[in-house]
Design a binder for these strands. Structure first.
Lengths: 120, 120
DNA sequence: CTAAAACCTAACGTTGACGTCAGAAGCAAG
DNA sequence: CTTGCTTCTGACGTCAACGTTAGGTTTTAG
């Protein structure tokens, strides 16, 4: 499929797809005239990339991990890397949970016993 | 206390503290010569700011919410805003959880049954 | 009193993941 | 054939939360 189709199917912009290639995350084949051609599997790959970006991984980190996904093999180094990212994500989840609870506290306090009725 | 002390106590850079003021998140008093002076309460306030930044809120959003925290009163609008941010954080936690599980899957698959022994 | 340390304002630099625009070329339909 | 949509390669623009540098003042330690 061509880049526009992939963009539509993944809901990722054409620019982003080119950017992913630039970062070494995606390697489409090229037609004679230079147009990119993607296999069906690219759809899932883009979704994985999006998910990892969403989790705060950088292009560089994702690029380092993709060969593991492709080859289904990890070196001790890449395994350590993966575990480190997982731990970072866990830490971030904990942080977000605290922030959320904090926000709920604020909501509770500021929604307090109808301020308009105090002293009335 | 002065800006350097606050920076030390909150582990936030001096530049960041000035930036927070610029964004309307912090309002220190000034000494005759123009130096910023912070009350002790500023320590907790900076921590709250950091926590909200960490949760992905923007300066603008935080600036809108601080008056509620100060006055301990929220308007229906600000309450909706707070709830919206909380929901966004919950969504983000869910996303991170999925990504983490995905990473764990990758770790499992790539750490598979000793690849070096296959076909040996 | 003096030198070092801390502070001030103003303003440009950084980073990452794209958005956007310019100009040229490929491709399906009538 | 040509109209119009898609794609191509640069390359500059964006945005947020600071980092950094410059040049000058204030405070503190000795």
């Amino acid at each position: 499929m061509r880049i526009g189709d992939l963009a539509t199917r993944t809901r990722v912009s054409v620019r982003a797809l080119r950017y992913y290639e630039e970062q070494g995350l995606l390697a489409p084949t090229r037609s004679g005239s230079g147009q990119r051609h993607y296999a069906d599997a690219a759809v899932n790959r883009v979704r994985l990339i999006q998910q990892l970006y969403g989790a705060g991984l950088s292009s560089k980190t994702i690029a380092e991990l993709m060969p593991c996904v492709d080859a289904k093999v990890s070196t001790p180094e890449s395994r350590a890397r993966l575990a480190a990212e997982r731990d970072r994500i866990n830490a971030q989840i904990a942080e977000l949970t605290l922030a959320r609870d904090r926000l709920n506290d604020i909501i509770d306090v500021t929604s307090g016993p109808n301020p308009q009725c105090d002293y009335v």
